[in-house]
Simulated assay, not measured.
Amino acid sequence: MVGRFFSNLKIKNKMSKAAQVDEATNDWPTVDHDYMKDKVEVKRTENGAWVTYVKLSDDRIAKIKEGTGADVEKATLISGNDQSKFLSALMACAIEVDGSPIVMEDLSGFKMKDYLAMQVAFADLNF
Results as ranks from 00 to 15, higher is better:
Met1Arg: 04
Val2Thr: 15
Val2Pro: 05
Val2Cys: 13
Ser7Leu: 15
Ser7Cys: 15
Asn8Ser: 05
Lys12Glu: 13
Asn13Lys: 09
Met15Cys: 11
Met15Trp: 08
Ser16Glu: 02
Lys17Asp: 09
Ala18Met: 14
Ala19His: 12
Glu23Phe: 02
Ala24Trp: 09
Asp27Gly: 02
Asp27Asn: 14
Asp32Gln: 05
Asp32Trp: 08
Asp34Ser: 14
Met36Gln: 08
Met36Tyr: 15
Asp38Ser: 00
Asp38Leu: 04
Lys39Trp: 02
Glu41Trp: 10
Val42Tyr: 10
Val42Gly: 12
Lys43Gly: 04
Gly48Trp: 06
Ala49His: 13
Thr52Pro: 04
Thr52His: 00
Tyr53His: 11
Val54Leu: 07
Lys55Ile: 05
Ser57Val: 09
Asp58Arg: 00
Arg60Tyr: 04
Ala62Met: 08
Ile64Met: 12
Lys65Glu: 10
Glu66Asp: 06
Gly67Tyr: 02
Gly67His: 00
Gly67Ala: 01
Thr68Phe: 02
Thr68Lys: 13
Asp71Tyr: 00
Val72Glu: 02
Glu73Ser: 14
Lys74Ser: 08
Lys74Ala: 14
Ala75Leu: 09
Leu77Ile: 13
Leu77Phe: 13
Ile78Met: 03
Gly80Trp: 00
Gly80Ile: 09
Asn81Thr: 08
Asn81Gln: 07
Asp82Tyr: 03
Gln83Val: 10
Ser84Glu: 13
Ser84Gln: 06
Lys85Ile: 11
Phe86Cys: 10
Leu87Phe: 07
Ala89Lys: 03
Leu90Glu: 07
Met91Glu: 05
Met91Asp: 04
Cys93Ala: 09
Ala94Ile: 05
Ile95Pro: 12
Asp98Pro: 02
Gly99Thr: 08
Gly99Ala: 07
Gly99Val: 03
Ser100Tyr: 11
Ile102Tyr: 02
Ile102Ser: 01
Val103Leu: 01
Met104Lys: 13
Leu107Pro: 02
Ser108Asn: 14
Ser108Trp: 01
Gly109Leu: 09
Gly109Trp: 00
Phe110Leu: 15
Phe110Ala: 09
Met112Pro: 03
Lys113Asp: 15
Asp114Met: 04
Tyr115Asp: 09
Leu116Tyr: 07
Ala117Val: 03
Met118Glu: 05
Ala121Asp: 01
Phe122Leu: 10
Leu125Met: 06
Phe127Arg: 12
